[in-house]
Design a protein around this nucleic acid. Structure first.
Lengths: 241, 241
DNA sequence: GAGCATTTGTCCGTATGTATT
DNA sequence: CAATACATACGGACAAATGCT
């Protein structure tokens, strides 16, 4: 008797080295090949999906998946475009929404402002080859850049807007990542049903000169599309000696 | 018509706030309650398992799960026992194997030694309430501590052995974490079939005085038992100003 | 230790819905 | 529109692990 895990292992071994996007045998094909029912073949493909080896699309088929390495460290400034391009894929980022809102209390304390202070709330989406892989929610007090909303219609990079229009040098002062199972509203934003693991990253940026808090953000990244690697580099810890 | 996701959402809402270990309705119970077949009820419970909300044990049932937060930062020295106890669970660690081996090339270069240098290879297991949640493979050249094997029969902490018998002050000079789908040998060590996500952490320790490399390790931690949070703290990045 | 009921794991065959091509 | 492929669901069956008697 052959189990679905053996089928999964066999197929996984055959997949090894295939180019991302390559088509994988369909459920009926696998069922016929291994002499099992569609249920077992389906379980095998779902197992491969859990291992992040394949991506399944209803109506289209099952395809070899690949993850992009995203290294986070002090020495390496983060860049979606550079990271995705380095992996041989085409990056894209979209400002989906800019809103003027009064700061809720939780965000205000983090930004070291009074609750109710007017701020911009920016929602951005990040793509790998037309796959929505991440989105961020960023909060910038209007006293940092009054007309961020109009500026973002021209320039895409918030960092650039802050430097040019805000006349500040933003520095990522604090950063924190963890792997989460996304709450419903995050699933909606990422346009996935059912559950797939995501990284949640929170950050706080200050002005390099004044130390004033410029921005705080929360980002969600699909773990099946990106492998986040966090590095506490040697130079940081050397101070301990 | 009611779908398995709605059942999952309903049950998830009811579970919210339940104590870890609480029993969840069985598949037949759910099927009866929502007027669906066992397949749909089963899918709902599997969905909750993917969300890490429950843990399922063949023959026993489905139970509310809880994850322990493990914060990694420069300022906080890591301790399995302290972390698990802080979460209200009982920790345990076991030295499963100590072996004297000649360093393979990959490990030797990291340890800044010649390939073939004699070293200790230590396998340790880490438990949360009798659940095997993590294991590590550590390499220590014998020139650091000649008789590590006998010492570990008495003391459990490698750090303590290095300090006392090796007369060194080990400092974690480098650390790196990422979320992985475990290769087969890791699944075996963690005693899980099928696929569950794990964190892989790699580290390198040096002597605080001489800078000599003392130890390198690879660790694997079940993501359904532990939530690893990595923090790049403000003090580190302040230097940029 | 043996026996039994419970519960989850695996699998079958079949059917229908839905998205893609 | 038709064919393909995955998603969901049913009923039934047996296996395997657990816990209790």
């Amino acid at each position: 008797m052959i189990g679905y895990l053996e089928i999964a292992d066999t197929v996984a071994a055959e997949l090894h080295g295939s180019a991302p996007g390559t088509r994988v045998a369909s459920e009926p094909e696998l069922a016929g090949r291994f002499g099992v029912g569609r249920a077992a073949a389906r379980s095998a493909l779902q197992e491969l999906e859990r291992r992040l080896l394949v991506r399944r699309v209803q109506g289209a088929g099952t395809f070899v998946n690949s993850r992009i390495d995203y290294v986070i460290s002090r020495t390496r400034p983060p860049s979606w475009h550079a990271t995705v391009e380095a992996a041989g894929a085409t990056p894209r980022s979209v400002v989906r929404d800019v809103e003027r809102v009064d700061l809720p209390e939780a965000v205000a304390t983090r930004l070291e402002r009074e609750p109710g202070t007017p701020a911009h709330r920016v929602i951005r989406e990040f793509y790998i080859d037309d796959l929505l892989a991440a989105w961020t929610e960023e909060w910038i007090p209007v006293d940092v850049v009054p007309n961020l909303d109009t500026a973002l219609q021209v320039v895409d990079s918030i960092d650039a807007v802050l430097r040019q229009m805000g006349r500040v040098v933003p520095i990522r002062a604090w950063y924190r990542v963890s792997l989460e199972m996304p709450p419903p509203h995050v699933l909606r934003e990422l346009r996935v049903e059912s559950s797939c693991p995501v990284y949640m990253g929170e950050s706080l940026s200050r002005d390099a000169d004044s130390g004033r808090v410029l921005m705080t953000s929360v980002g969600w990244t699909r773990a099946d599309a990106v492998r986040v690697i966090v590095e506490l580099s040697e130079t940081i810890l050397e101070e301990h000696r």
